[in-house]
Design a protein around this nucleic acid. Structure first.
Lengths: 185, 185
DNA sequence: CACTTTGTTAAATTTTTTCTTAACAAATTA
DNA sequence: TAATTTGTTAAGAAAAAATTTAACAAAGTG
């Protein structure tokens, strides 16, 4: 039989894990996921791999909820499906390297922001250019169109920068400028 | 009287603005704000300055809603209060430089993520260290504690990197590595 | 200092989101 | 191929969030 010291130690380990699981789950709202998905990822962080039945056991929610949560986590790159042959159950594993989850999530997010807004800016600029280049339009109106055109043109600098940032994170180039370091400071 | 060409031009300008307002409002969910706050910021983006009454006029929502929205936008650095003397009304202006809104929002967010998780990691590591350094505990349990300790220690590299990233954005250093550029590409 | 205007907050309502129940589809096994 | 297991999806229930109404507080004005 296990000594009472060992039992206490196991409890300490669970306490330590729960501490981290709690904050990860809490901060997962930053990644736009539901509480269920947040708790699931935080739980999986300490597990090698899990299938749906283990998830509902550990997290204490329904299978449907785990199914949708795990798919959401896959979409943002926090969880990967493992292809295990000879088993009906699907197994998943959490991405435990936070640099990878960071990259996956923010690059996706920034790409969405940049492309959506650039699309809108292009459409708007085309309309404004028509006005600016039409000699028969009143000067006052043209001036307004020019002002907005200049604003939108300026905003493109930002969206292109956002894409460059995403690219340099994806390629890992950014770590030449901002290295991953072990030391505190 | 204004010519019909000029009227059409004004409409074109409104169309162009609405195109951009629409997508900004739509992508504002990335910044964790309510639809009301999103629409408000998008509207303010094309205005020099606004007071609450102008906001509810333009956005078409209640004064209470504008009041809470504008405060939320202030918190994340998207809107600033202007101190106008000699008027009872509060006036606000939108931050129109997206580099500044980016900086303000993400630095705040990343600081929250880093500090919350580092706190939890420190607490957890202290517990785990007790087990690792206790000679009377079973090896199997110690091994587990060591495994988790190593994971958590590794995760600190990420959180420190996140803070460095935030710092280099705040100081503007990052633009030496990733310059703001005017050209497409 | 009473009066008016402006902005905030709390309570109630509406809307949206999240989660569960339950029916269904897909895949595996016997 | 029938039976069983597993995972998904749609519909409904529960919970949470956003917005409005309305009461209140704060600040400026006459």
């Amino acid at each position: 039989m296990e000594s009472s010291k060992d039992k206490a130690a196991r409890e300490k380990i669970e306490f330590a894990k729960d501490q981290v699981i709690g904050t990860i789950a809490e901060t997962m709202d930053l990644y736009g996921v539901t509480p269920a998905a947040g708790r699931l990822y935080a739980t999986m962080y300490f597990e090698d791999k899990m299938n749906l039945d283990e998830m509902l056991e550990e997290v204490g929610m329904t299978k449907a909820s785990m199914s949708t949560s795990v798919r959401k986590l896959q979409n943002i790159g926090f969880v990967k499906r493992l292809f295990t042959r000879g088993s009906r159950k699907h197994t998943y594993t959490a991405e435990k390297n936070f640099f990878n989850t960071f990259m996956s999530f923010y690059c996706q997010q920034w790409e969405r922001e940049a492309s959506m807004n650039l699309d809108a800016v292009h459409i708007a600029e085309k309309e404004l250019a028509k006005i600016i280049n039409d000699p028969s339009i009143a000067e006052e109106i043209k001036a307004e169109a020019e002002e907005y055109y200049e604003m939108l043109n300026e905003s493109k600098v930002y969206y292109h920068w956002l894409r460059k940032l995403a690219a340099s994170i994806r390629t890992g180039e950014i770590f030449e400028f901002l290295p991953k370091e072990n030391d505190e400071s």
